[in-house]
Amino acid sequence: EKADSDKPTNVEADQMAYDDVHQVNTFTGNVVLTRGTLIMRAAKLVVTQDPAGYQYATLTAAPGALATFRQKRDGGPNQWVEGEAVRIEYDGKAELVKLFTRAKLRRLEGTKPTDEVEGEFISYDSRAEFFSVNNTATGESKPGGGRIKAVIQPRNDAKGK
């Protein structure tokens, strides 16, 4: 949701280590980041800040687990997007969420997923609500890379609802 971008960011974690020289903030242990309707969970969160004050977050999952994120979408009353991956990078300036390795992205209406994509790398622009999927964790598509699977639910036309 666009309104999220000027909301404060809350982080809960077990431990925190801040390096004032490089201005890098590392949270570890049951990390929960919330910002407006955006909520992200992971085992580790590293936050850096650029001179302009924009924050860049990298969430890494505990071994075997997945880092997750969920955010409300502007598209309608109860529209949500959820994603999970081994590593999630969030660019606070461009409001771009990048999911690396075993990445999944679902769009939901309430709790009913409307469409879902899987791949090795998914990038989701939360402002334009556009996402692209590639089959290698590096972000480009290469032959022989992972498979991409997309399930797009039929749109039942608004009248029918």
Binding site: V11, Q15, D19, V21, Q49, A52
Partner: peptide, 18 residues
């Protein structure tokens, strides 16, 4: 050294960038 660590129950609130 500019090191700063919190050992437990961390709760941080960061204002949005201007």
């Amino acid at each position: 050294t500019g090191e700063f660590r919190l050992a437990g129950k961390v709760h941080g609130t960061y204002q949005a960038a201007r």
